[in-house]
Simulated scan of single mutants.
Amino acid sequence: MEMATSFLYPAPPSILLNCMSVVGLAALAKIGWSETRGNHLKYSKFASSSSSPQKQERFGSISSRTGMLWLYTPAFLAASASFFVLPSDDLRFLLLKSALALHFFKRVFEVMFIHKYSGGMAIDSTFVISSSYFSSTALMLYSQNFTLGLTEPSFDMKFIGIVMFVVGIIGNLYHHCLLAKLRKEDGKKEYKIPKGGLFDIIICPHYLFEILVFWSFFLISQTIYSFSFAMATTFYLVGRSYATRSWYLSKFDDFPKHIKALIPFVF
């Protein structure tokens, strides 16, 4: 317990935050496990993949570009609004607001100008992911607000977090650009084995760098909630990357077996 307090601010006096730290972690871990079992959130290459076709038809779908905008825009607006709703001259709080706003601005920018899409996105999956990003962003900021005026943790990790954020956001953007080059135009449903960058050794380097981004949020903020959500995101993207590698193995006979899912040479 003493070691934890060296890295973390104390638990906030909020039943909501403390409950959501547990519930959010459990929920995303369950979804990540479901991904490995073939029950996917229906977007990207898994948009038409479902263990329950009737469920997909009942909720319907929207275009992938519109769906992706729904995923990231509410979280971007929440992070942007925090500069006015939760004004503070605290450096750690300012860094967290800026990192969250920049991350989700980048995602909206990619949706508008970089990614190429085909097919649709299930509305239920859109709602689940958008709600998760929006609520986690709002709760990270709300949790940080409780730290104002408290004694800093013994180990200050916010500057390490800044470095990790820069590495994560650049690495994620670079590999998203490589993925975009695989498809010549919107609406054309074609898949190829990605190449270049870390794609030569793992099939989901964009997920690896996204995990770094969410852990950078924790290092900048050092709150229990941000730790919980970073852990939850890791569990989900581990499951999603496992499912992605399995998909490539099933679709391409020439998929190189040495290419791992998420962690070079390991997993």
Rank of each mutant, 00 (worst) to 15 (best):
H176N: 13
L91E: 13
T126Q: 09
K106C: 06
A180K: 02
M140Q: 10
K55H: 11
A99V: 08
S63V: 01
I114K: 05
A180W: 06
Y117Q: 07
A79W: 10
V167Y: 09
R107N: 08
I114Y: 01
G168L: 01
R65D: 01
Y174I: 03
H176R: 06
V128K: 12
I62L: 14
S88Q: 07
G161L: 03
V163Y: 04
V85A: 14
Y174P: 02
R92H: 10
F84S: 12
I169V: 14
M140A: 13
G120Y: 08
D90C: 08
N172E: 15
W70F: 14
S143P: 00
H176L: 02
F46M: 06
Y142F: 12
L91K: 13
F104L: 06
L100K: 09
F104A: 04
V167D: 04
L141K: 10
I62E: 03
G149T: 06
V108E: 06
L91P: 01
P53L: 08
K55F: 08
L94P: 03
S80H: 03
R107I: 06
A75I: 08
S52T: 12
L141I: 11
M157H: 09
K158M: 15
N172F: 00
L100A: 12
Y72W: 07
H115V: 01
S135N: 01
T66M: 11
T147K: 09
I162G: 03
M164V: 15
E152P: 05
V166G: 04
G171D: 10
A138C: 12
S132R: 00
R58T: 07
D89C: 02
F159Y: 15
E152L: 12
M164Q: 10
F83N: 09
L91T: 15
G67Q: 05
L69N: 13
Y72T: 01
S154R: 12
L178G: 05
F134V: 03
L141C: 09
T137H: 06
V163K: 06
M121V: 10
S130P: 08
F84K: 11
L102C: 13
S64K: 07
S135M: 13
Y72G: 02
K55N: 10
R65V: 03
T66L: 14
A47N: 13
F105N: 06
L182G: 08
H115W: 12
I162K: 07
E110W: 07
G119K: 09
Y133P: 00
K116T: 07
V108L: 07
V166N: 06
C177G: 01
V128A: 14
S48A: 11
Y174R: 15
F59I: 10
H103M: 03
Y174S: 07
